[in-house]
Design a protein around this nucleic acid. Structure first.
Lengths: 170, 170
DNA sequence: GTGGAATACGAAAACAGTTTTCAAAATCGG
DNA sequence: CCGATTTTGAAAACTGTTTTCGTATTCCAC
């Protein structure tokens, strides 16, 4: 059993599906298809993990340097509204966006040392939450569980950390 | 069994203890005791629940209208540093502060309708998290679990909501 | 008590992340 | 391709929070 999901290859078909789904959403809402929006969502869905606005903007600018913050923010809001993307906040003050998985809901473990964000899912945990809510006459719409701590595999951890520093510098 | 804690009366002795503990902290750090800090912590510990900076400032101003944001922020940071208070963020963009309970750690249920924040604690939930972390070679320092949803007791819920609107208006 | 170094204060400016404004540009149904 | 409507990018505004700066306060040594 491996509850932490391995990084997966980008599935081009899945990306195309999502682009189509977004296009349909746009049409349904009577909005317009634009070059910028297409660039942004194409970029977003080809990135993995928990993307901050800045990270996304940086990538987007490689394709079209004239795209600015505002459009990225606006497009991300649309993506969230469309249900294709979820917004998360891990307490460092910035919003992060995550392609709404086709697979089940998941929670997060965040290493405070290397900054890695692991995903996990456990049905017993979900069931227990439901039970507790039930007992308190409360109906859960959504929940958030985050475990903050440290990787025990110190080697892998410091390797990730080093890589991150390099990225920030370069 | 009633996992949701009832609102408790203010225990003046406990408040005094905390004030003393903070005074000791201040001394230990070589900082100074000031009228403003005393007012702020006295006010804070007599409020219950998850206090935002603005809520606290409003209350503080009743005792001393000349106290400003900066001092409240600074004092809250000291309170957090002292370990007497915990900072929480529930995703509405503002920090909330909570007197560090003498009782066990707890999690939160947040009603998206009336805004009430319920506390709960369940040892099985804690144990399960530990187990999952173990399985993933991860060490938990702290965690956060928030259930967002709605009270099923609609009457109590809308009553709270009404009260909140009145408060905001008056 | 008083002097004086250290700290704290309050107001306002700075700040970071995000949202809004506005005039110009792009979209798209007719 | 017209024209109503939407979108864009740059810049300004906004929000919650932090920092700055000159003045005031604390408090230890005397």
């Amino acid at each position: 059993m491996a509850p932490v999901k391995p990084k997966k290859q980008i599935d081009e078909n899945l990306v195309k599906e999502k682009e189509t789904a977004f296009a349909e959403f746009i049409q349904r809402k009577g909005l317009k298809t634009t070059r910028q929006r297409n660039t942004i969502i194409a970029t977003f869905f080809r990135l993995q993990g928990h993307i901050s606005v800045e990270e996304l903007l940086n990538e987007v600018k490689k394709a079209n340097p004239r795209i600015g913050y505002a459009t990225v923010y606006r497009t991300l809001h649309l993506l969230v509204e469309s249900g294709l993307v979820e917004e998360r906040r891990f307490g460092d003050g910035l919003a992060r966006y995550e392609g709404h998985s086709d697979v089940e809901h998941h929670d997060h473990m965040i290493c405070l040392d290397c900054g890695e964000i692991f995903e996990f899912y456990n049905p017993r945990l979900e069931a227990l939450q439901e039970k507790l809510a039930e007992e308190n006459d409360f109906q859960i719409y959504r929940h958030r569980l985050e475990l903050y701590g440290a990787c025990k595999d110190k080697e892998a951890c410091s390797h990730r950390k080093r890589k991150k520093v390099e990225q920030a510098a370069g």
